[in-house]
């Protein structure tokens, strides 16, 4: 099996897409592991599937629509109770926009 390490800059790019902070040794290890796993996935290349429809749903069924009705939900406090931080009836998050704080 070809041992193709994923280059460091690619690992960092994917980590950024995934919003994952990686420690140095972690990024290195993942480069090796993902390389090995993806080399195994290349076994799919021996199949010619260009003309085969992909399966996104294993059991074919339509997209069901529910009736357009109001259904009860929990009061706001119920959701906020699970939040790491809340204030003024909302989720409190770190500053998103530059400028005024």
């Amino acid at each position: 099996m070809a041992q193709t390490k994923i280059p460091r800059d690619q690992v960092e790019h994917v980590a950024k897409l995934a919003s994952l902070m990686l420690a140095d040794d972690e990024a290195d290890r993942l480069g090796h592991e993902l390389g090995e796993i993806l080399a195994y996935m290349a076994s799919l290349d021996e199949l010619d599937v260009a003309a085969v429809e992909p399966t996104f749903h294993s059991i074919p069924m339509g997209a069901p629509l529910r009736a357009d009705e109001v259904i009860a939900c929990f009061p706001r406090e119920t959701y906020l109770k699970s939040a790491p931080k809340s204030e003024a009836g909302g989720f409190a998050v770190p500053k998103v926009l530059e400028g005024e704080g």
Binding site: S19, M21, S82, P84, K85, F91, P94
Partner: peptide, 17 residues
């Protein structure tokens, strides 16, 4: 942000990561 743990770290994106 909405549930589970949070590890504050700089701005929003850094906090996510």
């Amino acid at each position: 942000m909405r549930y589970g743990m949070r590890k504050p770290s700089g701005d929003l994106r850094q906090t996510y990561a």
